[in-house]
Amino acid sequence: MLRLFEVIGKRLLLGFVTLFIVSLLIFSAISLLPGDFAQAVLGQSATEDTLAAFRAGLGLDKPLIQRYFDWIVGVMRGDFGSSFSGRNSSGFDLSRPVLEIMAPKLRNTVFLALVTAVIAVPLALILGLLTALFRNSIFDRSANGLTLTTISAPEFFLAYILIIGFGGLLPTIANVKPDMGLFERLRLVALPTITLTLVIVAHMMRMTRAAIINLLASPYIEMARLSGASQTEIIFRHALPNAWAPIATVIAFNLAYLVVGVVVVEVVFTYEGIGKLMVDSVGSRDIPVVQACALIFAATYILLNLLADLIGIFTNPRLLHPR
């Protein structure tokens, strides 16, 4: 048991180290972005003095290293700083904290991701198990063909097809408001959810199928068969318990994608999510928001992969019950 905690502790520590390195990368990458926020706001006619004063007001005149430390220390306290937008040459500061801008969008993205995950993950697992169970049957081939088609088509294309097909039945603009009820929200995100499900199911399903089929060739499966186990028992009792590690990894990967990679779907359905926020902020050179979004994306990836690793450990009797 002690060894197990050691493993978990090590993974957590590694996660934090990774996040730290990523924060460095994010910060330096964004500093390399072309364009200057002061110039963008004040226009070409601004004098050098006004530009300098404006930069000083935002702290952009400080050395890069100090700016990084100011930022990262703030982040550790839960303060992502203030947005650049809302500031102008008039001297009035109408800017809002990054967190305040980000929170509702993040909530929307997580909501869409959760709804999609609740549908897509069980669907993919069930399809994966069934296709493994009825390998090479017509069902297997059509399920594989269909999911491959949906994963091969670009997301926006799928989205538009769905809009054309179901536009009459379901709302095509997912403009959710904070005060909406759950049912109304669900109705609005129906089409984005279906689009995302179609995009991620294939990968998870095929991985589940491959993991199970791979195990079906092992001697202990033949042994189980020769002790009279039925095909269902073989898949669920004998193969599946040994297949969780690869399945968890691919699920984690796809869930992370639901948070990090949904910007196209958000734009098509004008859904106010964090992907859209980040793209908009890059356009307006709103550096604090871009940094915060990037950091959240990185944390999502790291956290989900950590979870997958832990599932891999907890389902491996060699680690759980050392000699």
Binding site: P219, Y220, E222, R225, L226, G228, P241, N242, T315, P317
Partner: peptide
């Protein structure tokens, strides 16, 4: 299946590979 494991059993060559590691 009704006979396998109950009236006829099988003992495999490599025991290490023939036991399910999860049980």
């Amino acid at each position: 299946r009704a006979i396998w494991g109950t009236r006829i059993s099988y003992v495999a060559q490599s025991a290490a590979a023939s036991f399910n590691p999860a049980h």
